[in-house]
Protein backbone atom coordinates (compact mmCIF):
# COMPACT_ATOMS: atom_id res chain seq x y z
CA UNK A 1 0.00 0.00 0.00
CA UNK A 2 1.38 3.41 -0.92
CA UNK A 3 1.74 6.24 1.63
CA UNK A 4 -1.05 8.20 -0.06
CA UNK A 5 -3.44 5.24 0.08
CA UNK A 6 -2.58 4.63 3.74
CA UNK A 7 -3.24 8.29 4.54
CA UNK A 8 -6.58 8.10 2.70
CA UNK A 9 -7.63 5.04 4.68
CA UNK A 10 -6.62 6.60 7.97
CA UNK A 11 -8.38 9.87 7.17
CA UNK A 12 -11.52 7.98 6.18
CA UNK A 13 -11.43 5.98 9.37
CA UNK A 14 -10.89 9.12 11.45
CA UNK A 15 -13.81 10.89 9.83
CA UNK A 16 -16.07 7.85 10.11
CA UNK A 17 -15.25 7.20 13.76
CA UNK A 18 -17.62 9.79 15.30
CA UNK A 19 -20.42 8.66 12.98
CA UNK A 20 -19.86 5.02 13.91
CA UNK A 21 -19.76 5.99 17.59
CA UNK A 22 -22.99 7.96 17.29
CA UNK A 23 -24.67 5.14 15.36
CA UNK A 24 -23.69 2.62 18.05
CA UNK A 25 -25.32 4.81 20.69
CA UNK A 26 -28.51 5.41 18.69
CA UNK A 27 -28.67 1.80 17.53
CA UNK A 28 -29.85 0.34 20.86
CA UNK A 29 -32.95 2.52 21.43
CA UNK A 30 -33.75 2.44 17.70
CA UNK A 31 -33.77 -1.36 17.62
CA UNK A 32 -36.02 -1.47 20.67
CA UNK A 33 -38.32 1.11 19.08
CA UNK A 34 -38.51 -0.93 15.85
CA UNK A 35 -39.24 -4.09 17.74
CA UNK A 36 -42.02 -2.39 19.64
CA UNK A 37 -43.63 -0.41 16.83
CA UNK A 38 -42.73 -2.13 13.57
CA UNK A 39 -41.95 -0.33 10.31
CA UNK A 40 -44.75 2.19 10.80
CA UNK A 41 -43.11 3.33 14.02
CA UNK A 42 -39.79 3.80 12.24
CA UNK A 43 -41.45 6.00 9.63
CA UNK A 44 -42.94 8.09 12.41
CA UNK A 45 -39.54 8.31 14.08
CA UNK A 46 -37.85 9.68 10.97
CA UNK A 47 -40.73 12.04 10.22
CA UNK A 48 -40.83 13.40 13.75
CA UNK A 49 -38.15 16.12 13.38
CA UNK A 50 -39.81 17.47 10.25
CA UNK A 51 -43.25 17.35 11.86
CA UNK A 52 -41.89 19.13 14.93
CA UNK A 53 -40.61 21.99 12.77
CA UNK A 54 -43.89 22.07 10.84
CA UNK A 55 -45.81 22.09 14.10
CA UNK A 56 -43.80 24.89 15.69
CA UNK A 57 -43.63 27.16 12.67
CA UNK A 58 -46.96 26.41 10.95
CA UNK A 59 -49.52 24.68 13.17
CA UNK A 60 -48.90 26.59 16.40
CA UNK A 61 -49.03 30.03 14.66
CA UNK A 62 -52.19 28.85 12.87
CA UNK A 63 -53.88 28.00 16.17
CA UNK A 64 -52.66 31.27 17.76
CA UNK A 65 -53.96 33.14 14.72
CA UNK A 66 -57.35 31.52 15.20
CA UNK A 67 -57.43 32.70 18.82
CA UNK A 68 -56.46 36.22 17.72
CA UNK A 69 -59.36 36.22 15.28
CA UNK A 70 -61.70 35.72 18.24
CA UNK A 71 -60.41 38.77 20.09
CA UNK A 72 -60.45 42.52 19.68
CA UNK A 73 -58.26 45.40 20.84
CA UNK A 74 -55.05 47.05 19.74
CA UNK A 75 -52.77 45.10 22.09
CA UNK A 76 -50.66 42.33 20.57
CA UNK A 77 -50.45 40.00 23.62
CA UNK A 78 -53.38 37.57 23.67
CA UNK A 79 -53.89 37.98 27.42
CA UNK A 80 -54.38 41.74 26.94
CA UNK A 81 -57.07 41.29 24.30
CA UNK A 82 -60.84 41.02 24.72
CA UNK A 83 -62.63 37.83 23.68
CA UNK A 84 -65.34 38.64 21.12
CA UNK A 85 -66.12 35.22 19.65
CA UNK A 86 -67.00 35.36 15.97
CA UNK A 87 -67.54 39.13 15.91
CA UNK A 88 -64.57 39.81 13.62
CA UNK A 89 -65.88 37.24 11.11
CA UNK A 90 -69.36 38.76 11.29
CA UNK A 91 -67.84 42.17 10.64
CA UNK A 92 -65.95 40.87 7.61
CA UNK A 93 -68.95 39.04 6.22
CA UNK A 94 -71.47 41.84 6.91
CA UNK A 95 -72.48 42.87 3.40
CA UNK A 96 -75.66 44.16 1.76
CA UNK A 97 -74.55 42.53 -1.46
CA UNK A 98 -71.27 40.69 -1.88
CA UNK A 99 -71.09 41.96 -5.44
CA UNK A 100 -71.23 45.61 -4.36
CA UNK A 101 -68.32 46.33 -2.02
CA UNK A 102 -69.78 49.72 -1.07
CA UNK A 103 -72.56 47.91 0.83
CA UNK A 104 -70.08 45.97 2.96
CA UNK A 105 -69.09 46.91 6.50
CA UNK A 106 -65.44 46.15 5.65
CA UNK A 107 -65.51 47.43 2.10
CA UNK A 108 -61.73 47.29 1.71
CA UNK A 109 -61.71 43.56 2.55
CA UNK A 110 -64.31 42.86 -0.11
CA UNK A 111 -62.54 45.15 -2.56
CA UNK A 112 -59.43 43.03 -1.95
CA UNK A 113 -61.48 39.82 -2.41
CA UNK A 114 -62.90 41.06 -5.73
CA UNK A 115 -59.48 42.28 -6.91
CA UNK A 116 -57.88 38.97 -5.94
CA UNK A 117 -60.59 36.99 -7.75
CA UNK A 118 -60.10 38.94 -10.96
CA UNK A 119 -56.32 38.77 -10.61
CA UNK A 120 -56.40 34.99 -10.10
CA UNK A 121 -58.57 34.38 -13.18
CA UNK A 122 -56.57 36.61 -15.52
CA UNK A 123 -53.11 35.85 -14.13
CA UNK A 124 -53.55 32.04 -14.07
CA UNK A 125 -54.94 32.05 -17.62
CA UNK A 126 -52.08 34.23 -18.85
CA UNK A 127 -49.50 32.27 -16.88
CA UNK A 128 -50.72 28.96 -18.34
CA UNK A 129 -50.84 30.19 -21.94
CA UNK A 130 -47.46 31.95 -21.78
CA UNK A 131 -45.81 29.01 -20.00
CA UNK A 132 -47.12 26.51 -22.59
CA UNK A 133 -45.99 28.72 -25.47
CA UNK A 134 -42.55 29.19 -23.94
CA UNK A 135 -42.18 25.50 -23.14
CA UNK A 136 -43.15 24.58 -26.72
CA UNK A 137 -40.57 26.98 -28.14
CA UNK A 138 -37.84 25.90 -25.74
CA UNK A 139 -38.58 22.25 -26.55
CA UNK A 140 -37.70 22.81 -30.20
CA UNK A 141 -34.21 22.48 -31.66
CA UNK A 142 -33.48 26.22 -31.59
CA UNK A 143 -30.07 27.86 -31.58
CA UNK A 144 -28.81 28.54 -28.04
CA UNK A 145 -31.61 26.52 -26.44
CA UNK A 146 -29.83 26.19 -23.05
CA UNK A 147 -29.15 29.90 -23.03
CA UNK A 148 -32.82 30.74 -23.66
CA UNK A 149 -33.94 28.29 -20.99
CA UNK A 150 -31.66 30.10 -18.51
CA UNK A 151 -32.98 33.48 -19.67
CA UNK A 152 -36.61 32.49 -19.08
CA UNK A 153 -35.80 30.94 -15.70
CA UNK A 154 -33.70 33.86 -14.48
CA UNK A 155 -36.59 36.06 -13.12
CA UNK A 156 -37.60 33.18 -10.81
CA UNK A 157 -34.30 33.66 -9.01
CA UNK A 158 -34.91 37.35 -8.37
CA UNK A 159 -36.28 38.59 -5.09
CA UNK A 160 -39.90 39.79 -5.51
CA UNK A 161 -38.90 43.20 -4.14
CA UNK A 162 -36.20 43.51 -6.79
CA UNK A 163 -38.72 42.46 -9.45
CA UNK A 164 -41.21 45.06 -8.23
CA UNK A 165 -38.61 47.82 -8.11
CA UNK A 166 -37.22 47.07 -11.58
CA UNK A 167 -40.68 47.29 -13.10
CA UNK A 168 -41.59 50.34 -11.05
CA UNK A 169 -38.56 52.15 -12.44
CA UNK A 170 -39.63 51.14 -15.91
CA UNK A 171 -43.31 52.07 -15.59
CA UNK A 172 -43.36 55.14 -13.33
CA UNK A 173 -44.05 58.60 -14.76
CA UNK A 174 -40.37 59.41 -15.17
CA UNK A 175 -39.47 55.81 -15.97
CA UNK A 176 -37.74 54.03 -18.82
CA UNK A 177 -40.90 53.26 -20.76
CA UNK A 178 -41.96 56.91 -20.86
CA UNK A 179 -38.45 57.89 -21.88
CA UNK A 180 -38.72 55.56 -24.88
CA UNK A 181 -42.25 56.79 -25.66
CA UNK A 182 -41.00 60.39 -25.48
CA UNK A 183 -37.97 59.67 -27.68
CA UNK A 184 -40.27 58.12 -30.27
CA UNK A 185 -42.33 61.31 -30.32
CA UNK A 186 -45.19 60.00 -28.19
CA UNK A 187 -46.85 61.53 -25.15
CA UNK A 188 -45.58 60.04 -21.83
CA UNK A 189 -48.33 58.38 -19.82
CA UNK A 190 -48.84 57.86 -16.11
CA UNK A 191 -49.20 54.06 -16.32
CA UNK A 192 -49.35 53.30 -12.62
CA UNK A 193 -52.13 55.80 -11.88
CA UNK A 194 -54.41 54.29 -14.51
CA UNK A 195 -56.55 51.45 -13.15
CA UNK A 196 -56.41 49.33 -16.31
CA UNK A 197 -52.68 49.70 -16.85
CA UNK A 198 -51.82 49.22 -13.18
CA UNK A 199 -53.79 45.94 -13.19
CA UNK A 200 -52.19 44.90 -16.49
CA UNK A 201 -48.77 45.70 -15.07
CA UNK A 202 -49.48 43.70 -11.89
CA UNK A 203 -50.57 40.65 -13.90
CA UNK A 204 -47.76 40.90 -16.47
CA UNK A 205 -45.01 41.42 -13.92
CA UNK A 206 -46.13 38.47 -11.83
CA UNK A 207 -46.33 36.29 -14.97
CA UNK A 208 -42.86 37.47 -16.00
CA UNK A 209 -41.50 36.73 -12.53
CA UNK A 210 -42.87 33.19 -12.14
CA UNK A 211 -43.38 31.75 -15.63
CA UNK A 212 -39.88 30.23 -15.67
CA UNK A 213 -40.84 27.82 -12.91
CA UNK A 214 -44.02 26.64 -14.65
CA UNK A 215 -42.27 26.49 -18.02
CA UNK A 216 -39.79 24.08 -16.47
CA UNK A 217 -42.59 21.77 -15.28
CA UNK A 218 -44.23 21.82 -18.72
CA UNK A 219 -40.90 21.32 -20.45
CA UNK A 220 -40.37 18.16 -18.41
CA UNK A 221 -43.83 17.00 -19.47
CA UNK A 222 -43.15 17.74 -23.15
CA UNK A 223 -39.91 15.80 -23.07
CA UNK A 224 -41.71 12.80 -21.61
CA UNK A 225 -44.03 12.53 -24.64
CA UNK A 226 -42.77 9.69 -26.86
CA UNK A 227 -41.16 10.96 -30.09
CA UNK A 228 -42.69 8.18 -32.16
CA UNK A 229 -46.14 9.70 -31.75
CA UNK A 230 -44.94 12.87 -33.48
CA UNK A 231 -43.13 10.85 -36.15
CA UNK A 232 -46.32 8.88 -36.86
CA UNK A 233 -48.32 12.10 -37.10
CA UNK A 234 -45.74 13.58 -39.45
CA UNK A 235 -45.89 10.48 -41.70
CA UNK A 236 -49.70 10.85 -41.78
CA UNK A 237 -49.26 14.50 -42.81
CA UNK A 238 -51.09 15.84 -39.73
CA UNK A 239 -51.11 19.62 -39.46
CA UNK A 240 -49.08 21.14 -36.55
CA UNK A 241 -52.18 22.64 -34.90
CA UNK A 242 -53.90 19.23 -34.90
CA UNK A 243 -50.74 17.63 -33.48
CA UNK A 244 -50.83 20.13 -30.64
CA UNK A 245 -54.54 19.64 -29.82
CA UNK A 246 -54.61 15.85 -30.33
CA UNK A 247 -51.20 14.72 -29.06
CA UNK A 248 -49.29 17.36 -27.13
CA UNK A 249 -52.08 18.87 -25.03
CA UNK A 250 -53.75 15.60 -23.90
CA UNK A 251 -50.41 14.06 -22.96
CA UNK A 252 -49.31 17.25 -21.23
CA UNK A 253 -52.54 17.45 -19.21
CA UNK A 254 -51.20 15.97 -15.92
CA UNK A 255 -48.38 18.53 -15.85
CA UNK A 256 -50.73 21.27 -16.97
CA UNK A 257 -53.15 20.55 -14.13
CA UNK A 258 -50.31 20.73 -11.62
CA UNK A 259 -49.23 24.04 -13.13
CA UNK A 260 -52.76 25.47 -12.98
CA UNK A 261 -53.32 24.46 -9.36
CA UNK A 262 -49.90 25.69 -8.23
CA UNK A 263 -50.38 28.96 -10.11
CA UNK A 264 -53.84 29.33 -8.53
CA UNK A 265 -52.46 28.96 -5.00
CA UNK A 266 -49.65 31.38 -5.72
CA UNK A 267 -51.95 33.92 -7.34
CA UNK A 268 -54.27 33.95 -4.32
CA UNK A 269 -51.23 34.72 -2.15
CA UNK A 270 -49.93 37.50 -4.42
CA UNK A 271 -48.32 40.31 -2.41
CA UNK A 272 -44.70 41.39 -2.52
CA UNK A 273 -43.95 42.32 -6.12
CA UNK A 274 -47.33 44.02 -6.61
CA UNK A 275 -47.02 45.84 -3.26
CA UNK A 276 -43.68 47.29 -4.36
CA UNK A 277 -44.89 47.97 -7.90
CA UNK A 278 -48.25 49.68 -7.30
CA UNK A 279 -48.65 49.94 -3.51
CA UNK A 280 -52.18 48.61 -4.05
CA UNK A 281 -53.12 51.67 -6.12
CA UNK A 282 -54.39 53.51 -7.98
CA UNK A 283 -56.93 53.89 -5.22
CA UNK A 284 -57.45 50.29 -4.16
CA UNK A 285 -57.56 48.76 -7.64
CA UNK A 286 -54.56 46.47 -7.05
CA UNK A 287 -55.15 45.94 -3.35
CA UNK A 288 -55.05 42.17 -2.92
CA UNK A 289 -55.99 40.03 0.05
CA UNK A 290 -52.52 39.52 1.49
CA UNK A 291 -51.78 43.23 1.31
CA UNK A 292 -55.10 43.97 3.02
CA UNK A 293 -54.18 41.56 5.82
CA UNK A 294 -50.69 43.05 6.12
CA UNK A 295 -51.99 46.62 6.14
CA UNK A 296 -54.78 46.07 8.63
CA UNK A 297 -52.61 43.86 10.84
CA UNK A 298 -49.38 45.79 10.91
CA UNK A 299 -48.86 48.77 8.62
CA UNK A 300 -51.89 51.02 8.87
CA UNK A 301 -52.37 53.55 11.63
CA UNK A 302 -55.88 52.06 11.77
CA UNK A 303 -54.41 48.61 12.49
CA UNK A 304 -56.64 45.87 13.87
CA UNK A 305 -54.86 42.54 14.51
CA UNK A 306 -58.09 40.66 15.26
CA UNK A 307 -59.66 41.61 11.96
CA UNK A 308 -56.45 40.79 10.10
CA UNK A 309 -56.36 37.34 11.73
CA UNK A 310 -59.98 36.65 10.80
CA UNK A 311 -59.29 37.71 7.21
CA UNK A 312 -56.23 35.46 7.06
CA UNK A 313 -58.23 32.50 8.40
CA UNK A 314 -60.83 33.03 5.66
CA UNK A 315 -58.07 33.27 3.07
CA UNK A 316 -56.51 30.14 4.55
CA UNK A 317 -59.77 28.26 3.99
CA UNK A 318 -59.67 29.18 0.29
CA UNK A 319 -56.09 27.93 0.12
CA UNK A 320 -57.07 24.67 1.83
CA UNK A 321 -59.71 24.08 -0.86
CA UNK A 322 -57.15 24.78 -3.59
CA UNK A 323 -54.59 22.50 -1.93
CA UNK A 324 -57.16 19.68 -1.71
CA UNK A 325 -57.82 20.24 -5.39
CA UNK A 326 -54.09 19.95 -6.06
CA UNK A 327 -53.93 16.67 -4.08
CA UNK A 328 -56.92 15.34 -5.98
CA UNK A 329 -55.31 16.25 -9.30
CA UNK A 330 -52.03 14.67 -8.22
CA UNK A 331 -53.73 11.43 -7.16
CA UNK A 332 -55.73 11.24 -10.37
CA UNK A 333 -52.49 11.66 -12.32
CA UNK A 334 -50.84 8.89 -10.31
CA UNK A 335 -53.80 6.54 -10.85
CA UNK A 336 -53.79 7.26 -14.57
CA UNK A 337 -50.03 6.67 -14.71
CA UNK A 338 -50.43 3.37 -12.88
CA UNK A 339 -53.17 2.22 -15.32
CA UNK A 340 -50.98 3.03 -18.31
Amino acid sequence: MTAAATLKTWTGAALAAPVVWLASIVNVPLKSWQRATGTGGMAAFFLAPNMAIFGIFVLVPLVINFFYSATSGTAYFLQDRTYVGLEQYQRLLDCGSYLDTATCREDLFWKAVHNTGLFVVVQVAMMTIVSIATALILNREIVGRSFWRAVFFFPVLLSPVVTGLIWRWILQRQGLLNLIVHDMGGEPYNWLTDRFWAFTAAVSVSVWAHMGFYTLILLAGLQAIPRDLYEAAEMDGTKPARVFWRITLPLLMPNLLVVIVLALIRAVQIFDEVYVLTGGGPGTSTLYLTQYIYEIGFASLLRNPGLASAASILMGLVLVVLTLLQLQVGRRGERKGARE
Binding site: R173, T193, G279, G281, T284, Q291, E295, A299, L302
Partner: peptide, 14 residues
Protein backbone atom coordinates in the same frame (compact mmCIF):
# COMPACT_ATOMS: atom_id res chain seq x y z
CA UNK B 1 -49.62 65.54 -9.18
CA UNK B 2 -51.70 62.38 -9.31
CA UNK B 3 -48.89 59.95 -8.49
CA UNK B 4 -48.42 60.98 -4.88
CA UNK B 5 -51.92 60.28 -3.57
CA UNK B 6 -53.47 57.95 -6.12
CA UNK B 7 -50.72 55.41 -6.71
CA UNK B 8 -51.01 53.68 -3.34
CA UNK B 9 -53.71 52.12 -1.18
CA UNK B 10 -54.43 52.50 2.53
CA UNK B 11 -52.62 55.03 4.66
CA UNK B 12 -49.17 54.49 3.08
CA UNK B 13 -47.02 57.61 3.38
CA UNK B 14 -45.61 59.07 0.16
Amino acid sequence: LKDTWVSAAGSTYR
